[in-house]
Simulated assay, not measured.
Amino acid sequence: MGNLMIRPRRLRVSSGVRAMVRENTLDAGDLVFPLFVVPGSRVKNEIPSMPGNYHLSPDMAEEVAREAYEAGIPAVLLFGLPEYKDAEGSSAWDANSPVQQAVRRIKAALPELVVITDVCLCEYTDHGHCGIIKGQKVDNDSTLVRLGQTAISYAEAGADMVAPSDMMDGRVASIRQALDACGFQDISIMSYAAKYASAFYGPFREAADSAPQFGDRRTYQMDPANAREALKEVALDVQEGADIIIVKPAMAYMDIMHQVKTSFRQPVAAYNVSGEFAMVKAAARNGWIDEKRTVLELLTGMKRAGADMIITYHAVDAAKWLRDR
């Protein structure tokens, strides 16, 4: 027994053995695919900084949602670029805005596909901030009213879930109360609870035409240096009625994801954001990395860190690679 050698490699000798002892498994059912919906019809224009992702009119959003569903992806997350913008972002709760149109089309065609709608005003305001401006600051409490209106509008269109991303204090409670008062008790809230003021959002702001016209978002999005604050934000959102918690971005915040997963009972979603996606795409196009292996490794890492689901622009490609594997 003194010469006994422990050989961990015995459990790596073949693909079958490796599959038997694998601790975390990535599946298409773990993925959520974001879509950018614009006015018009038959519009499908590739977003330059996000190859393979498009500005889609409601009819084309339905087609792309079908492709995602047929690949085994259970949910889509809709963002909107409206026909008009104003100081309050009133097109966000306009029943005829592109997101509401797309929700109606997708749910009619694919009733089993989960449709989630982002709830924020930044795409809809002429100043690009996530709330109502008073002076040079975003006014928290007046913004809550508009977020509630927006969530109700999406629920009326048929959304299964709303995802507030604005980072206003008290917005989950305000949206929950607004939905419940209108009879939408069954609409879930997927809260961007730990959303950091990150440099990784650049391509998204081009895609959503949502860059702020002055200042930045550091007075409401979180400081990247803080971890305890994330747990405080999550605790507040859970207390206010959040059903699912998002940590955003994913790659630089896997420690936060792990802490949230081990501290709370709510399902956790990782948001693999636009800058993370664009870096992988650029490196792959230059031949510096193997795109398929890199993407699946990153997404598996997010699962290992604690994510129950992953919002990612890689979703359709990843689902196809997983199916083929």
Rank of each mutant, 00 (worst) to 15 (best):
G131L: 10
G131A: 13
G131M: 12
G131V: 08
I133M: 15
I133G: 09
I133C: 12
K134N: 12
K134I: 12
K134A: 11
G135Q: 13
G135A: 09
G135K: 13
G135D: 11
Q136C: 01
Q136V: 12
Q136P: 00
Q136N: 15
Q136S: 14
K137F: 11
K137V: 10
K137G: 05
K137S: 14
K137Y: 11
V138T: 12
V138I: 14
V138A: 06
V138R: 08
D139W: 13
N140Y: 10
D141G: 00
D141C: 01
S142A: 12
S142L: 06
T143G: 09
T143H: 07
T143Y: 03
L144D: 09
V145K: 14
V145C: 00
R146K: 15
R146T: 01
R146Q: 13
R146N: 14
L147N: 02
G148C: 02
Q149I: 00
Q149F: 08
T150H: 04
T150M: 11
A151Q: 08
A151D: 07
A151S: 14
A151G: 02
A151T: 07
I152K: 07
I152N: 09
Y154L: 03
Y154G: 00
Y154N: 14
E156N: 13
A157M: 09
A157G: 08
A157R: 11
G158W: 08
G158P: 06
G158V: 11
G158E: 12
G158L: 06
G158Q: 11
G158M: 10
G158A: 12
G158C: 03
G158N: 10
A159M: 08
D160M: 10
D160C: 06
M161T: 07
V162I: 14
V162R: 01
A163V: 01
A163D: 07
A163E: 10
A163Y: 10
P164D: 10
P164F: 01
P164V: 09
S165P: 09
S165E: 01
S165N: 03
S165I: 01
